[in-house]
Amino acid sequence: MSPGSSAVALDRAAVRLDGRDVWRDATLQVGQGEFVAVLGPNGAGKSTLLKALLGLVPLSAGKAEVFGRPVRRGNPEIGYLPQRRRFDPDLRIRAADLVRLGLDGASWGVPTPSVAKRSRVADMIALVGASAYAQRAIGELSGGEQQRILIAQALVGGARMLLLDEPLDSLDLNNQQAISELIRGVCRAEGVTVLLVAHDVNPILPFIDRVVYVAGGHVLCGHPEEVIRTDTLTRLYGAPVEVLRTTDGRLVVVGLYEPVSHHADGH
């Protein structure tokens, strides 16, 4: 892969927070249109990696480029879903308005009515299959419905890359499957590069082109067949992990589940 065609390029990058290296010497490249799983134990700096690409966390060393340009805050080419709890049930703003904020929510000045913007918002809501409930307040929607709306919000500004921080967390199995397929569809059909931080890799295992793993102060990159193996994952997580193959040929990762605790990863 030539550097010019890469969506993400890190060159000996490091991030320091509160006087400690979160990770350092990170060198990797992600190609445009790739679906990338970001794996690693809690607190290893997965969220920090996404924030570094967003320009929200400064590098202490090295370089980071997105689509061939140095990272900068407010890059409209990137759509972002932060790690979050659900929206407050009392939050009184329509889902469609939340999507619209992804289009012009960062612009100053008095808003003017725009047919083009309205139809762009409606198209994105249709793309993620959320038309039925887009007129309701976001707080009233289920976790899976909120996640679809947020994906529409992330895409509506014309993003060519999605940075998704545990978007499948707190969803039931059906929704994990459905949202994974939706993201894969967007990645394939629209050529959008996806970096997805996953706590549980199984729902996205069939789709991923590449794995970025963050552990022990390092950020490494590999092909799924090199990484999704019993010995590699056990070493990576520092805990026993087994990779099994089902009778229909799919891989399943077992034992990845740590006690649920997200506080350490919230930088």
């Binding site: 972002y80 939340l98 904020l101």
Partner: peptide, 13 residues
């Protein structure tokens, strides 16, 4: 409004 309802995403944008 963006910063009020969704501060993390607003900051990233």
């Amino acid at each position: 409004v963006f910063a009020s309802v969704d501060p993390d995403v607003a900051e990233a944008r």
